[in-house]
Structure formats: C-alpha cells, structure tokens
Design a protein around this nucleic acid. Structure first.
Lengths: 197, 197
DNA sequence: CAATCTATCTAACAGTTGTTAGATTTTGTG
DNA sequence: CACAAAATCTAACAACTGTTAGATAGATTG
C-alpha cells in the first residue's frame, strides 16, 4: 500500500525547486538525493515525506516546465491574429519564463529522455497541446497568406521549436552579452525568413 | 605510474563507437561501464586495457564529435565566397555527418557539460575553431553587403549554431517524416531571414 | 617449442546509490 | 500543558558504481 503524498504545498514546492536547480546543474543521473537534500539543509531520507521517488521528482519538474512552455505558447496565440505579433509575443513570454523558471525549462529540455518510458508517454500527451498551438498559428498564417511560399506549416513549426530551444540554450548556458538584443535578432531572422514577402 | 594506452587502433575505435552509442542512448551518468562492455560482448574490466577511465572515454567521444563539426564548418567555408553557398554546404555537410557519426554528435551536444572542468576547458579551446569559422563567414558576408540590415555577425552566428543544433536534434530524436525536405526549409528560413534583401 | 606480447576474464575493492522503517523533534490545537 | 499531527533525522539495506590486480587464454615472434 503506497503512502499518500500531498499534491501541493509550499514546502513541497521548495523541494521541487531545489530538485530542479540541481538537476539543471548536474543532470538527473549526476544528481544524488543527498545533493538535493543538502541544498535544503536537510537529510536525504526526509525528502521521501514529500516525494514518492527520484523519478517522480523528475517527472514533476519536467511536467511543470512543459506546462510553462504551453502557457507561453497560449500567450503568443492570444496576442493577435497576425503571425509576427504572435511569434514575437510567444518568444517574449518564453524569455520571461526563463528568467522566472529557468531551471524547470532547462531540466525539461535536457533531461526529458531520462524519464521512464511510461512517464515519457504521459509527457508527450501533454506536449501535444504545445504542438497544436504552434500548428494553429502556422496553419492560420498560411490561410492568411502570411507564410513564405514553399514553406510548409509543419517545417515552420520545427523551425520555431528550434528557435525557442536556441533561446533557452543561450539563456541557461550563458552568459550571452546583450542577450535581449541577440534574442530579438534571432527572432527577426526567423520572422523575415518565414513570412511571405 | 600510469599504464600507457595506445592512442589509436581498430579495436579502440570499436570501443569508442560502443561508448558513443550507449552514451547517446542513456546519457553519460546513466551509462555503466558494464553497459558498454555488454554491447561489445566483453567484461567491464577489460575496457581498461583500452581506456584510461570513463571520463576519458567521454572526453574522447566529445572531441571527435567536435572535430567532425569543425570539418563540416570548414567544408562550408570552402564551398564558395557567397553566404548562401557556404551556409547550404555547411548544413549539408552537417547532415551527412549525422548519418555517419550521429552518436558522436549527439553525445557531444548533450553530454558535454558532464565533462570535468579541465576537460571542458580543453574542449572549449578546440571549439574556438568552429566559432572562428562561423565568424569569418558572417564577417565576410557583412563586408560583401550580404547580411540583412540590423543583423550583427555575432547574432547571425548564434542563430546559425541554433539551426545546426536543431537539425541535429531532429535527426537523433527523430524520426521526422521527410527529414531532408524539412531540413531544407529550415535552412531556407534562416537564409531568407539573414540575407540582405 | 619457448617466450613474449596482446587482449580478455575473474573476482573483488571501497564508495555511492535510491530507498526504507522506526525513533525523534517540531509544530499546531484544545 | 497535553496531545496529535507534521516534518525531519538516524541508521541501515541491498544493489550498483568505476576501477584494479592478478590469473588466463590466444596470437606473434625468436
């Protein structure tokens, strides 16, 4: 019979924050439960009052990161009907996200594949939403004649995901001098290349 | 007194290939020496006849991956004086590279940060060459008036590295339907956005 | 054949891993 | 203050980690 573990509490949040921070720094397999505990000034065994397992912690951190990314995509979609407003708003939201929850995003990007097969499956289901969001953006852009000739919405989505991942990489791996300006230019490249002229 | 270990031999190559494959699949820390040995039909201890340590194996795999990437960049640079010829040739070389040495590139991209501090330093020195290659490409493009207005060579480099990383990601994480066509469109986006119009 | 070299195996080491059960402390409530 | 609940600590577990020394087999050479 497994013990019940509260789904949410301030303390639990602090523990997940610590886990995200150490996972981001040393990688999932490179991190010991004792590393997480140390950062909180407690002992490893005590973590299991709040967490079911190390794997469960990773899944939860990844899921939180994914949900953040989805929220950024939704903000982008809601920013207006035009492609460029949407992409700019989305990228901007993603960068704000990095400032606030960089560890979660970094772990989600880098350690996702360390999840167990079933956990990975669960994450993929959630990530559908992110993909659908982007597909809607680029499908509508095509209908409005805003997409460059010869560019398929699907390829545009792949490229945009790459841009988001690149911004994330630059931010967490940084420091990149004058990051906001670099980010703006990267997005400009994408938009100038993806939009009809 | 440390044992001497041959710098290169067919057997050693096979062992590094196996290490690269398992590192790519399960991550560095997620991989045990026994996993590498299993894949070769041998026992873990025997690896130390060819390898100094697990860390040394990772460093060597990463270095090989980096050198491949540099070769691709050089091929791109040599493909002609124009920006678009160079970028297209470089991306094409990178994709060919993925087909031949995908594991090495994947490990280099994903597990680089698991290297020890000194090993990381050594890699950074090598990677300078890759950066310089790209900087020369974009600096010359600017001089030739081929770079979009408002786009700095440095930002262009960051964006291009992101494109290469994106292609790598799509390839190793795949399968992506009709990958060559998707890759072409991603590169087109970059070129249309980065070139002066 | 004898001797040497190359490659592998065996067996074990010391340290670390995630995790657990039970005792103990801290916190909140009547 | 007494009691209960929540949170943490202690101490240990079995399994696994990278690594090593020494024995063993196979190939090469004199």
């Amino acid at each position: 019979m497994p013990e019940e573990i509260a789904v949410s509490s301030p303390r639990r949040q602090a523990i997940l924050d610590a886990a995200a921070a150490v996972f981001a720094e040393k990688g999932f397999h490179g991190t010991g439960m004792r590393d997480i505990a140390d950062r909180l000034g407690m002992k490893a065994g005590s973590l299991y009052f709040h967490l079911a397992s190390k794997d469960a912690a990773l899944e939860e951190v990844c899921a939180a990161g994914m949900h953040s990314a989805i929220r950024a995509a939704e903000q982008g979609f809601a920013a207006g009907p035009g492609l460029s407003e949407r992409i700019r708003a989305m990228a901007e939201a993603q960068v704000e996200l990095l400032a606030a929850h960089g560890d979660y995003i970094s772990v989600f990007v880098h350690e996702r594949r360390q999840l167990s097969e079933p956990a990975q499956q669960r994450l993929v289901e959630v990530s559908q939403k992110h993909r659908q969001m982007l597909d809607r953006i680029f499908d509508e852009a095509r209908e409005r004649g805003e997409l460059a000739v010869g560019l398929s919405p699907r390829s545009a989505r792949y490229a945009m995901v790459g841009v988001l991942r690149n911004l994330t990489q630059l931010y967490v791996e940084g420091p990149v001098r004058d990051f906001p300006e670099v980010a703006r230019q990267i997005i400009d490249i994408f938009l100038d290349g993806a939009q009809a002229r």
